[in-house]
C-alpha cells in the first residue's frame, strides 16, 4: 500500500510543493530592548499532488495557518522555496503573481467575517469576476447563477446578504466565490470547524463533487482528526512549526509513526470507541 502510493506520487508531478520553508515573527515590547522571535515555520516540506485532498492537521499555534498563508502568497517565507505548477513563486514580484493569484484561492474559517456584509450573494460572487474582467453584463449574471447552482444555493437567493444566511450557506457562498475564477488549488483554512456535523458532511460532499468536476486540489486545514479521516487522501501533521509526519491518509491513521500524531489520534480513538460501545449497548 505504502510503496504503491509513493510510486504514484513519484510519477505525478506535485501541484504545489514547499521546500525548506521557514518563517519567524519578531516582536518587541515597548519600554524595553528585548526582542522575541517566534518561529512559526521551521524547515517545512510539503508536497501536494494534483486533484487530491491533503489535510494539514496540528494544534493551534503549530504553524498550519502560517504555512497556508505562505502557500496562498499572502505572506513571504523568510527562506525556502514554493513551487506551483513547475514554477518557483515565493520570490516573485506582485506583477508576476497577478496571473497566479486566481489559481490559488483560500476559504477562511469565519465566513461571516470574510464576506462583505453589505454585498448581496450575487455581488459577492461577481466581485472577483469583475476585478479580473472575466465577464460582464448578462454573461456575468448567468455565470453567477451557474455558480450559485453549482454550490447548491437557490438562484432566487441572489439578493440575500451574508448575514441572512446560515453558517453552512455562507460557507457555500464563500466556495462559490473561490471557484468563480476557476482555480486549480483551494486552501480551506478551518473552513468546516464552525459548522454542525450535518452541515460539515454536506459541505464535504460538495467539495468532493467540485473536485470531480474541476479536478481541484485541496489543502484542508483542520484540528478535527475525525473529520480529516473521512476525506483526506494525504495527511500532513504539524507540531511547533515543524512538519512531523506527511503521508497517505491510510498510513497515518493506520500506523502513525510520530509520537505527536499518536497522541492526537489516541484521544480521537478513545472518544470513538466510547461512542461505538454506547451504540452497541455496552456498559458506560
Amino acid at each position: 500500500m505504502k510503496t504503491e502510493e509513493a510510486a504514484q506520487r513519484a510519477r505525478t508531478p506535485a501541484h504545489i510543493r514547499a521546500v525548506g520553508l521557514s518563517k519567524s515573527y519578531v516582536q518587541r515590547a515597548p519600554f524595553s530592548h528585548k526582542k522575541f522571535a517566534i518561529d512559526a515555520l521551521l524547515d517545512v516540506q510539503l508536497e501536494v499532488s494534483p486533484a487530491t485532498l491533503t489535510a494539514l492537521v496540528g494544534e493551534s499555534g503549530s504553524g498550519k495557518s502560517t504555512l497556508a498563508r505562505c502557500l496562498a502568497m499572502l505572506e513571504k517565507p523568510d527562506c525556502g522555496e514554493i513551487w506551483f505548477e513547475g514554477k518557483e513563486i515565493s520570490r516573485s514580484g506582485s506583477w508576476e503573481l497577478a496571473w497566479l493569484r486566481p489559481k490559488i484561492q483560500m476559504i477562511h474559517q469565519d465566513s461571516a467575517g470574510a464576506l462583505n456584509p453589505r454585498f448581496t450573494a450575487a455581488q459577492v460572487i461577481a466581485e472577483p469576476l469583475e476585478i479580473q474582467r472575466r465577464e460582464s453584463g448578462p454573461k456575468l449574471r448567468s455565470r453567477v447563477c451557474e455558480l450559485m447552482e453549482e454550490v447548491g444555493l437557490p438562484a432566487n437567493w441572489a439578493d440575500r446578504r451574508p448575514l441572512e444566511l446560515s453558517g453552512g450557506q455562507r460557507q457555500r457562498l464563500a466556495i462559490a466565490r473561490a471557484i468563480a475564477l476557476k482555480p486549480a488549488f483551494l486552501i480551506l483554512d478551518e473552513s468546516l470547524s464552525g459548522l454542525d456535523l450535518s452541515t460539515q458532511a454536506q459541505i464535504l460532499n460538495l467539495l468532493l463533487d467540485l473536485q470531480k468536476a474541476h479536478s481541484l486540489t485541496y489543502l484542508l486545514i483542520s484540528h478535527d482528526l475525525s473529520l480529516v479521516e473521512q476525506v483526506a487522501d494525504f495527511v500532513a501533521v504539524m507540531h511547533q512549526g515543524r512538519m512531523v509526519e506527511h503521508g497517505a491518509g491510510q498510513d497515518i491513521f493506520g500506523s502513525p509513526r510520530h509520537a505527536h500524531t499518536r497522541e492526537l489520534l489516541g484521544s480521537v480513538r478513545l472518544v470513538e470507541s466510547a461512542f461505538r460501545a454506547a451504540q452497541a449497548g455496552g456498559q458506560q
Binding site: 460532499n205 476525506v231 491513521f253 480513538r269 470513538e272 461505538r276
Partner: peptide, 28 residues
C-alpha cells in the same frame, strides 16, 4: 440521522476515494 453522521473509523475501511459521506439532507 445525527448518529449515522458520526465518523467511526470502521466505516472507512470499505470506502473508495471521492465517495460521498452519509448526510442528513436539508437544513434547519
Amino acid at each position: 440521522g445525527l448518529l449515522q453522521l458520526m465518523p467511526t473509523s470502521l466505516q472507512y475501511a470499505g470506502r473508495t476515494r471521492g465517495q460521498h459521506l452519509p448526510v442528513l439532507p436539508g437544513t434547519l
